[in-house]
């Protein structure tokens, strides 16, 4: 008897949040999912159910897809490794200044995204800081051209931008590793390296995977960094999703590419989670 009104009250309380989420997030995504099965005829969207857009995504854009995943994986891996070293230092080697270092990391986020890209451009370009320095030192005679406009430059810039997002979850995971377990390992004869591998890493692997996921997803979906630093031909899927939606006006293919990217990324993350953390968490 009383269950009904209570459920109603609960439903009403949930409604604003649920409504916003449905209206602003799920609905557009659902629409886009529907569009990905449509087709285009003479610059007009034709509703229907066709897999042509997906076929094009995986055939025509197949190699680019793989390259995007590889770039994202490289960025995420770089972030996790460098982020772990930093977070480890802040947690175990900085005494009471650890939190301060993390705060400083967060402050670098205020710099913004485009500023960092332009900074890397200023560093890596033919007449940039790096080349000027090398020329001045006499290490090279002519400016090095392969610093910029390739995958390497994109990976470095993305990793630089995403590093704080990797440090935070790793640091918080390391904060939960009790000092006393490190002392216990040492007392039982473990070297610092053994302690790291067998005691510290297993206790913070959920944080490592979280950091990897955040960086991987952000990098896989990025299209601005490759636009500025990746060279003219385009090296990441995001750039082509943009062009499919805008210049080519092929919404179905753009949508299909977006969903494929999301799906494959989710698969990659899930596989890594299962492999590293396991089902028990």
């Amino acid at each position: 008897m009383t269950g009904w009104p209570r459920m109603l009250r609960r439903g009403l309380a949930l409604f604003p949040a649920f409504g916003i989420l449905t209206g602003l997030f799920f609905m557009p995504i659902a629409l886009l999912l529907a569009v990905s099965f449509w087709s285009v005829r003479s610059y007009r969207l034709v509703p229907g159910f066709a897999l042509d857009a997906y076929a094009r995504t995986f055939s025509f854009y197949g190699p680019l897809f793989i390259s995007t995943m590889l770039i994202a994986a490289a960025v995420a891996l770089l972030c996790v490794v460098v982020g772990f070293v930093f977070a480890y230092g802040a947690r175990f080697r900085s005494g009471r200044y650890g939190d301060l270092f993390i705060l400083a990391t967060m402050i670098t986020l205020f710099g913004g995204y485009l500023v960092k890209i332009y900074s890397w451009k200023a560093i890596l370009s033919a007449n940039g800081i790096l080349n000027s320095t090398l020329l001045w030192l006499g290490l090279v005679d002519t400016p090095v051209s392969w610093f910029i406009f390739n995958r390497g430059a994109v990976i470095v810039a993305l990793a630089h931008f995403l590093l704080p997002f990797a440090i935070l979850p790793i640091y918080s995971a390391l904060r939960n590793v009790p000092d006393i377990t490190l002392e216990a390992a040492r007392d039982l004869g473990a070297s610092p390296w053994t302690t790291l591998v067998r005691v510290v890493l297993p206790q913070c692997k959920a944080g490592l995977v979280a950091a990897f996921a955040i960086c991987f997803l952000s990098a896989a979906g990025d299209y601005v960094t490759p636009m500025f630093l990746g060279g003219g031909s385009g090296i990441m899927l995001g750039q082509f999703i943009v062009s499919e939606f805008s210049t080519r006006f092929n919404w179905p293919v753009g949508a299909a590419m977006s969903f494929s990217l999301m799906g494959v990324s989710a698969l990659v993350i899930s596989a890594i989670w299962l492999a590293v953390v396991g089902r028990r968490g």
Binding site: I180, T181, E183, A184, A185, Q203
Partner: peptide, 10 residues
Amino acid sequence: NMVFQGYGLF
């Protein structure tokens, strides 16, 4: 070898 306060088990 030490038995720690709070044990320090893995």
